[in-house]
Amino acid sequence: MFDNLQLLIEFPAVTLDVVLNGLLIGAIFALAAYGMALVWGVLNIVNVVQGELVVLGGYITFVAVQWGLPPLLGLPLSAVVMYGVGWLIYRGVIFRVVDRDIFISILATFGLSILIQQLANLVFGAEVRSVDAGFGSLHFLDGMVSLAAVKIAAFVLALGAGAALWFFLRKARLGQAIRATAQNPRAARILGIDTDRVFAATYGLNAALCGAAGSLAVMAWTIQPYMGLPYTIRSFMVVVVAGVGNVGGVVAAALGLGALENVAGFVLGVEFQIAFVFALMVLILVWRNIRAARQRSYLE
């Protein structure tokens, strides 16, 4: 089982390849995690359907490419369509659970995740899908390190989207309204902010970020109807580690997670990669709780 660990130690170039590829994938996690942090901070909801929004975004790009659209145009298309999907989900379900017990929102979004996952399975089938963006790969160190150009593009685009989000939240009127609502919804309402509209826009924005992440995932990696929950857990983990209002921390944690996950998949075998993600999340929560307990507090 640990033969591959030996390999990593003996050939630093292999290690570099595994870590770099992981880091690039981590940028996609960062996009989904921004969205989760946004919804968590503003609506006070843990959005368990997050991963399914990513997968849906991927299918939109997949279908668009089948219809003859260039892959890179799939990214804005996925984001725009998913904004609409997010708005619909908010108007249909989320607004009814926003100010209720947090377990109600967890269970409701969990139900939505099963719903979307099964719909995707019926419509698109259970096969693993991907889109060839046609960019080829870059090779370094005599071909020991190879990076798909589309992954590098995904990395740049994801970081660009993060920066754009940061500016949007600080400069745009809606962004400021979102931040005000996150700090104190009641005060925001008194000041004349339509918090319901802000919630809807925030959730839509989250879905758009997920859509973009899914579009990049289908080009740089693969998607499949049942791949949603791991994205939810990754986003959750990243936000727990980085904190809700910390865009820079989210990027760092997501990239770290991408690298760590890829190394773990390489060492333990790909069949244990998902198990690693979920177990890591549990361990992080336990560790955080032990630290809190030392301060005579707890994780809630």
């Binding site: 969990f110 959750f236 929560l285 994780l299």
Partner: peptide, 24 residues
């Protein structure tokens, strides 16, 4: 020792991790 939604998500992780470990 973990409470509220952190406990719910932690146990969700536990369930999936167990299934994945058994599957590998």
């Amino acid at each position: 020792g973990i409470r509220g939604h952190y406990f719910a998500i932690a146990t969700l992780g536990l369930a999936v991790a167990s299934g994945e470990i058994a599957a590998g």
